Computed example of a mutant assay.
Amino acid sequence: MAIYSLWVINKAGGLVYQRTFNEGLAPLTSNDALVLAGTLHGIHAITARLSPTGSSSGCQVIEAETFKMHVLLTATGTKFVLLTSPAEPLTNADLVLRRVYEAYADGVMKNPFHTPEMPIRSEGFDTRVAAIVKGA
């Protein structure tokens, strides 16, 4: 079981944070990552409208042969995406995403020098994310 990567996508679909933790997926250029984040943003919006009851928050897990993509949508529209091995338990990925979201709220959004919706450049956030993933 492995956590490969973490992405944070702003409410407009832009990739504002990307961190790779383990090898296992094809390496992406920064441009590829930006395109994939925008594509995932669109897919997430489409899946939110596909619900027959009309009350869906969109896709939460996308499974493939070699990875799983777990998505946490926040109340502000920011998406936290965790790419894991297929064997990663759903509960573990959800716990990691919630802890990363807490670290984001505490370490990024409370920083008076951070501009919302812009790339995250915080050593404190990087350190907390690394500790969360290591402890998972």
Rank of each mutant, 00 (worst) to 15 (best):
A2K: 15
A2E: 08
Y4F: 13
Y4M: 00
S5G: 05
L6D: 01
L6K: 01
L6T: 01
V8T: 13
I9F: 01
I9P: 11
K11R: 13
K11T: 04
G13T: 06
V16Y: 11
Y17I: 01
Y17K: 06
Q18A: 13
Q18K: 07
T20F: 02
T20W: 04
F21T: 11
F21Y: 10
E23Q: 10
G24Q: 05
A26C: 09
A26Y: 00
P27L: 02
S30N: 09
N31P: 00
N31R: 13
D32H: 10
D32R: 07
L34R: 15
L36P: 00
L36G: 04
L36A: 09
A37E: 01
G38W: 14
G42D: 04
G42P: 09
G42N: 10
A45G: 14
I46N: 07
A48L: 06
R49L: 10
S51F: 13
P52F: 08
T53V: 02
S56G: 09
S56F: 04
G58F: 00
C59F: 15
Q60P: 00
Q60V: 05
Q60I: 01
Q60H: 10
I62E: 01
I62N: 02
E63V: 12
E63P: 13
A64V: 05
E65P: 02
E65W: 08
K68N: 11
M69S: 05
M69G: 04
M69A: 07
H70I: 01
V71F: 05
L72T: 03
T74I: 06
T74P: 03
A75D: 14
A75Y: 07
G77H: 09
G77S: 11
G77E: 12
G77Q: 12
F80A: 00
L83W: 07
T84R: 03
A87F: 10
A87H: 10
A87N: 14
E88F: 14
P89E: 15
P89N: 13
P89L: 14
T91K: 11
T91Y: 11
T91M: 14
D94S: 08
D94E: 12
L95R: 10
V96N: 06
V96D: 02
V96E: 04
L97N: 06
R98H: 10
R98C: 03
R99D: 02
R99K: 12
V100R: 06
Y101N: 14
Y101F: 13
Y101E: 12
E102H: 13
A103W: 07
Y104M: 10
A105W: 00
D106S: 13
D106H: 06
D106N: 15
G107S: 02
G107C: 04
M109T: 12
K110W: 00
N111E: 06
N111D: 14
P112H: 11
T115D: 06
P116K: 08
P116A: 07
P116H: 07
P119L: 15
I120G: 05
S122A: 08
S122E: 03
S122Q: 03
E123C: 03
G124C: 02
F125L: 06
F125H: 03
F125Y: 07
D126Y: 00
R128A: 15
R128W: 03
I132G: 07
I132E: 02
V133Y: 13
V133S: 09
K134V: 01
G135Y: 04
A136P: 01
A136T: 08
A136D: 07
